[in-house]
Design a protein around this nucleic acid. Structure first.
Length: 113
DNA sequence: AACTTGACGGTCA
DNA sequence: ATGACCGCCAAGT
């Protein structure tokens, strides 16, 4: 699997995250077949700002619901504001009710070939 | 070519 | 619950 394809697949999954829901890096990595680690998903998000299309990267957090990538949104609370504008409650860089808000492509989407 | 650094995650003490 | 450790793998130095 080429790296470019991996990027596109990550983006396509992230774009399918419904508004008001969040996903984790590891969940996306698993959905794409574990050929790549969660770090690679984070790496793909790091490059997502180059993509002409809008990628809702703020809906992707780590497995604890923590906004680990907030420093990549220009300001330090831009990501938090984006999430709060979508109805999330963020406290101390962590999403409250993360469990209820979690959206897992492995269960919400058909299996990836 | 060798070493370090992460938008990570699982395990174990 | 907390923290150390390890596997992961592309990029940067």
């Amino acid at each position: 699997m080429a790296t470019d394809d991996f990027f596109k697949k990550v983006y396509s999954v992230v774009k399918q995250i419904p508004t008001g829901r969040v996903c984790s890096y590891g969940a996306i990595a698993r959905y794409l077949g574990s050929t790549r680690s969660a770090r690679m998903v984070g790496w793909a998000m790091n490059a997502s700002h180059n993509h002409t299309e809008f990628i809702p990267a703020h809906r992707v957090v780590n497995r604890n619901g923590v906004l680990t990538g907030k420093n990549f949104f220009g300001g330090q609370h831009v990501m938090q504001e984006l999430l709060e504008s979508e109805g999330f409650i963020v406290e101390d860089d962590q999403i409250i009710n993360f469990k209820e808000r979690f959206w897992d492509p492995n269960t919400e989407l058909p299996d990836f070939q």
